[in-house]
Write a protein that binds this DNA or RNA. Structure first.
Length: 579
RNA sequence: CGGGGCGUAGCGCAGUCCGGUCAGCGCGCAGCGUUCGGGACGCUGAGGUCGUGGGUUCAAAUCCCACCGCCCCGACCA
C-alpha cells in the first residue's frame, strides 16, 4: 500500500474521549472511529488487524476439527422462549419487530440458533461429536459501554459449540478448545492466564476465563502468589482465617447502646470507638423464599453471588418500608435480635464462634452490643458470604491472595444439556435410546484481542505490533521521494517485497522526514526500512526494529533478501514458540 | 438506572460565573516562499446554525427550561 493513497487518518493529539491506552492508540492510528456509544467503525488499518486475528483463530479452530458457519444476526423469538432467555436476557438484548409485528432480536450469543440446527439435523450417536463455530457480530445493549472497543454494544466474537454424546466427550472437546485458545493467544503474543469463572446466565457446570492482566480491565481476578489458585472475584473463595485475637470478654452480655443517627458502620464505629471488626453488618433481602438477613463482619463486603449460591433463588434488597415492617426499625438500626417477623438468618463463616459483636437493635437510634451468635439469636446457616479481599488466605495453600484487574478475552463453558434439553436436540445411542446432546460453548472477543495486544505492546511513541497481527509487515520509509536514487531503490524494494508475498506499506508522501518517522512509530509496524541519501551514500539501507529500536545497516543490493529473511525469521519465532 | 464532567472549525482547547468588538488560540488543511534524517519557519487563505428546540431580554455561546449526544465513577455484565 502506498501511504499517499491510503486512508490512514493518524492524529497527533490524544482524543479527549479516550482514557485507556489502547483506545487512544486505536483512534490516533486511524484504526477505528466512534459511531455511537459502544459502536465503532473499523477503518482500513484496524480492519486489517482484525482480519489477521480472525485468520489465526480460523487456523487454530480448523486444527481441532471445528467447522465454520455463518449464522444470522436476526433471530426469532420462540427458541429464546424455550430456553428461558427471552426473559432472562432482559434489557441486555436488542429487540425489534418486523412489519407484521413479530418479535425479533439481535442475538447476544448463538446457543439457541446452533442448538436448533443440531436439533433439526442430528439423529444418531454416529453423527457426533461435532464442533461448530462462526465469527459473527454480537449485539449486547450493555448498561455502560466503555474503554473503546473493550466493552462495546456490538462486537465480533468467535463462538463455537461442541456436541458430544456424553460428559467424557464434552471433556475432550473442552480440552481441545482450551489448548486451541492458548495457541491463539500465544500467536498474538498475548500473555494470558486462566481463572475459574462464573457461568452466569449461560448456565452449565464449569467455566474458565482467559484473562490478560491490565489496569484497563473490568474484571477483578484473585490470584495466589504461591500456588496455582486463580479465580474471578465473582467466584473466588478464601480460606478461613483463624481469629488470632480471641474475643476480649468471653462472658459479655447483650446490652443496648444509644447511637443517635449513627446508621453506617463507619459512623457507629467512630462514635463508639470500636473497630469495624467488632461490628456486624445486618443486610436484609427479600428472596423468592421469603425475607433473608445476611450477617457479615463490619469490615467485609457481601458477595451477592455467594449469597445467591446459598439461597439458590433470586433476591433483592429490602425496601426501607419492608425493613421497618420486618424489624421494627429503619435501615441502619436493624439486626437479628427481636425481629418482628420470621426472617431467615444466614451468617458469614467468620462470625461463627465470635462474641461481643455489635449490630442494630431493631429500634431506631439504638444498637446492641455483646452479642454472641447462637446465644442471642439463632443462625440458620453459616457460609462464606463475604467478598474476598486482598491479603485473605488462599483456599488451597493459605498464602496471601492478591486481587488485580484483568481483561477477559475468552471464556469456555461446559454447558451440559441445558440447551439441548430445552430445544430437544437429542441423539439415539447404540441401544436405540434417546439422550440429550451434551454441549459446550466457547467464545473469544476479537476486538478485545486487538485492544489487549495494544495494551501489552505499546510504548510512548505508539503501538508495537507483533508481526503475526500487524497491519503490514514492513514499513518502507523513503526519506525524500523526490531524490532519484531514493525513489528508484524504494520502488524496487516495494515491488520486490510485494512479489515475495509480503505486506508492505510505503510512505511515499512528500512530507518532512520527522513527520513520517512519527507516523511510523505510532502505527507500529514491526520492521521499518529507511531509504535516504545519508545511507545511500554508503550504499546502505537501514532496517529498524520497532520493538527494540535497534538499527542494522545492510547493503542496498541485498536489502530485499535481508528484509525477507528477517520477516520470515520473526514469523517463525512466533510459530515455533507455540508448541 | 444513581453520581460527576462535557458538547464552541477536522483535532485539542479558551471565552460562559459577571449578557453588549467573543467568533478566538494552537495543531491540522489550501496557496506561495525558505527549509528538508525525528511532528520546521514566514506570509496569505478557507473553514464554525457556539449539540437541538423553546423561553427571558433592546441584545444570548453566555441567563432559564426541555431534549439529544459523548466520557468517567458506581450498579450491571453470557
Amino acid at each position: 500500500m502506498r501511504f499517499s493513497q491510503a486512508f490512514i487518518p493518524t492524529q497527533k493529539q490524544i482524543p479527549a474521549d479516550a482514557e485507556v491506552p489502547s483506545h487512544q492508540l486505536m483512534l490516533r492510528t486511524g484504526m477505528i472511529r466512534l459511531h455511537l456509544s459502544g459502536v465503532y467503525s473499523f477503518l482500513p488499518l484496524g480492519w486489517r488487524v482484525l482480519r489477521k486475528v480472525a485468520q489465526i483463530i480460523r487456523e487454530e479452530m480448523e486444527q481441532i476439527g471445528a467447522q465454520e458457519f455463518l449464522l444470522p444476526t436476526l433471530s426469532r423469538k420462540d427458541i429464546w422462549e424455550k430456553t428461558g432467555r427471552w426473559q432472562q436476557a432482559g434489557d441486555l438484548m436488542f429487540r425489534l419487530k418486523d412489519r407484521r409485528g413479530a418479535d425479533l432480536c439481535l442475538p447476544p450469543t448463538h446457543e439457541e440458533i446452533f442448538t436448533s440446527i443440531a436439533a433439526g439435523e442430528i439423529r444418531s450417536y454416529r453423527e457426533l461429536p461435532q464442533i461448530w463455530y462462526q465469527i459473527q457480530t454480537k449485539f449486547r445493549d450493555e448498561p455502560r459501554p466503555r474503554s473503546g472497543v473493550l466493552r462495546g454494544r456490538q462486537f465480533l466474537m468467535k463462538d463455537s459449540y461442541s456436541f458430544d454424546t456424553d460428559q467424557e466427550g464434552l471433556e475432550r472437546s473442552y480440552q481441545l478448545h482450551r489448548r486451541a485458545y492458548l495457541r491463539i493467544f500465544r500467536r498474538c503474543e498475548l500473555e494470558t492466564f486462566t481463572v475459574s469463572a462464573s457461568s452466569g446466565i449461560m448456565g452449565g457446570s464449569e467455566s474458565e476465563e482467559f484473562m490478560i492482566s491490565s489496569p484497563a480491565g473490568e474484571d477483578e481476578v484473585v490470584l495466589c502468589r504461591d500456588c496455582d489458585y486463580a479465580a474471578n472475584l465473582e467466584v473466588a473463595t478464601a480460606g478461613e482465617q483463624q481469629s488470632d485475637s480471641p474475643s476480649p470478654s468471653a462472658q459479655s452480655q447483650a446490652e443496648k447502646v444509644f447511637t443517635p443517627e449513627k446508621k453506617t458502620i463507619e459512623a457507629v464505629s467512630e462514635f463508639l470507638e470500636l473497630s469495624p471488626s467488632r461490628l456486624m453488618k445486618s443486610l436484609l433481602f427479600i428472596s423468592e423464599r421469603g425475607p433473608v438477613m445476611a450477617l457479615i463482619s463490619g469490615e467485609d463486603q457481601l458477595d451477592e453471588a455467594k449469597l445467591n449460591r446459598e439461597l439458590k433463588c433470586e433476591f433483592r434488597p429490602a425496601t426501607p418500608e419492608e425493613a421497618l415492617e420486618l424489624t421494627g426499625a429503619h435501615l441502619g438500626f436493624i439486626g437479628p435480635v427481636g425481629l418482628k417477623k420470621e426472617v431467615m438468618i444466614i451468617a458469614d463463616l467468620s462470625l461463627k464462634d465470635q462474641d461481643d459483636l455489635l449490630t442494630g437493635a431493631n429500634q431506631d437510634d439504638f444498637h446492641l452490643k455483646g452479642l454472641e451468635p447462637g446465644r442471642d439469636f439463632r443462625v440458620e446457616k453459616y457460609a462464606q458470604l463475604r467478598m474476598v479481599q486482598s491479603g485473605d488466605p488462599c483456599p488451597c495453600c493459605g498464602a496471601a491472595l492478591e486481587i488485580s484487574p484483568a481483561i477477559e478475552i475468552g471464556h469456555i463453558f461446559k454447558l451440559g444439556t441445558k440447551y439441548s434439553q430445552a430445544l430437544e436436540a437429542t441423539y439415539l445411542d447404540p441401544q436405540g435410546e434417546q439422550h440429550p446432546i451434551v454441549m459446550g460453548s466457547y467464545g473469544i472477543g476479537l476486538e478485545r484481542i486487538v485492544a489487549s495486544v495494544i495494551e501489552q505492546h505499546s510504548d510512548k511513541d505508539g503501538i508495537v505490533w507483533p508481526i503475526s497481527i500487524a497491519p503490514y509487515q514492513i514499513h518502507l520509509l523513503p526519506i525524500n521521494p523526490a531524490h532519484q536514487e531514493t525513489k528508484e531503490l524504494s520502488e524496487q524494494l516495494y515491488q520486490g517485497l510485494l512479489g515475495k508475498g509480503l505486506e508492505v506499506l510505503i510512505d511515499d508522501r512528500e512530507l518532512r522526514a520527522g513527520t513520517k518517522f512519527k507516523d511510523a512509530d505510532l502505527i507500529g509496524i514491526p520492521l521499518r526500512a529507511t531509504i535516504g541519501e545519508k545511507g545511500l551514500n554508503q550504499g546502505k539501507v537501514e532496517i529498524r526494529f520497532r520493538k527494540s529500536g535497534k538499527v542494522i545497516k545492510v547493503d542496498k543490493a541485498v536489502a530485499l533478501a535481508k528484509i525477507e529473511e528477517i520477516v520470515r525469521e520473526m514469523e517463525k519465532t512466533v510459530q515455533s514458540s507455540e508448541n
